[in-house]
Design a binder for these strands. Structure first.
Length: 347
DNA sequence: AAACCGGGGTA
DNA sequence: TACCCAGGTTT
């Protein structure tokens, strides 16, 4: 059977009875869609009942004070939804004569309505063949077709939208959209999906490849932390230096490095020599110069290390116990090794 | 492209 | 704790 027919049949037998599924009133449908953005049905339901009772028409909502609307929204989260809802209610009541736009193109112009919500309203209220793509649709399609494109990449967004649009049942777009989302919410769940008695199990690519739990794929947007490292490359007049072993849990555990002064940003020589750490190391006279005129940015998966190597020349230091011809014996981060290579070459 | 916006449920 | 939820707007 066709993908869409299977889903619609499943939907007609398994759907939950929800108040916004019993109406074609675009105002009610809009209200429910805004409330259900990033929100579970169980959480939004009581708010929907409260709002439709207090504001039975878009004019009632438009007449209310914004603070009243926000107060009623309290606890539902994402409060810009409530502000946009009220703004759009006033727009529809005052500028559009209370008539809700009936096409995707016009619906999406409304504040607080994006691609998903415009498609949902166009199909549910006006029976237009605009396919919805929400979190459920991403999950169902990526699994059934075995699509590994990241759903939060720009190419993934286009790919899934195009696919969803190609699959919609144009004779009953509302039922199809409802069906695929309900199927994703109840059957093809994020965790522990019910594959054992799934009506699509025979042709589900992810099930056959045993990758159901891995889909959909989402790009990890790991936040990169910028750190600013100042390494003090010490050279005593008896040709010794200092290497310190990194302890603790952070990066480079157990490896050796030159004494490090971390700063909030790249600093110049004056700023460096006035740091407390620097003065603790060098009580007496030294000469100091920046080795790399341009900062070296060492990129780790989750950190960008903006690095400056400072050459510090001084007379004999009791802490400086490592002879420069032994430095290469120590395990060091590649960042330090690369520095040593260019530094030694210049000598 | 990425940050931001929230409260709540689930494993 | 980490992930996800009938996403959209702003930068």
């Amino acid at each position: 059977m066709k993908f869409s027919n299977t889903l619609i049949n499943w939907y007609l037998q398994n759907k939950r009875e929800l108040p916004w599924r019993k109406t074609k009133n675009p105002y009610f449908i809009w209200l429910s869609e805004i409330m259900l953005q990033q929100t579970r049905v169980a959480q939004g339901l009581s708010y929907y009942l409260k709002f439709t009772e207090a504001f039975p028409t878009v004019f009632d909502l438009a007449k209310a004070d914004e603070s009243t609307v926000l107060k009623m929204w309290q606890g539902l989260g994402y409060y810009s939804r409530a502000r946009n809802l009220h703004f759009t209610a006033k727009h529809i009541a005052n500028d559009l004569n209370g008539e809700f736009p009936s096409t995707y193109k016009n619906i999406i112009k409304l504040k607080g309505i994006g691609d998903y919500t415009a498609s949902a309203i166009a199909s549910f209220a006006f029976n237009k063949p605009n396919a919805v793509v929400d979190g459920n649709v991403y999950r169902v399609l990526s699994r059934y077709f075995g699509i590994e494109t990241a759903i939060n990449s720009s190419t993934g967004i286009k790919e899934f939208k195009t696919l969803a649009q190609s699959l919609i049942d144009k004779k009953q777009p509302a039922n199809y959209n409802q069906a695929i989302m309900e199927f994703g919410a109840i059957q093809c769940k994020p965790q522990k999906p019910l594959c054992i008695f799934c009506p699509l199990s025979d042709s589900c690519v992810a099930l056959q490849k045993n990758v159901v739990e891995k889909l959909p794929i989402k790009e990890k947007k790991l936040k990169v932390r910028n750190r600013y490292f100042n390494f003090l490359v010490i050279k005593t007049d008896d040709n010794k230096t200092i290497l310190l072993k990194r302890k603790g849990k952070g990066i480079w555990q157990g490896l050796y490095q030159f004494p490090l002064i971390e700063s909030k940003k790249n600093i110049n020589k004056n700023e460096l020599i006035t740091t407390e750490e620097f003065n603790n190391l060098f009580p007496h006279e030294i000469t100091i110069s920046l080795f790399n005129k341009k900062e070296i940015v060492h990129k780790l998966s989750h950190q960008h290390l903006h690095t400056q190597f400072w050459i510090v020349e001084t007379k004999k230091l009791p802490q400086a116990e490592i002879n420069w011809n032994k430095v290469e014996k120590y395990p060091v981060p590649i960042l330090i090794a690369n520095f040593l290579e260019t530094y030694q070459a210049k000598k």
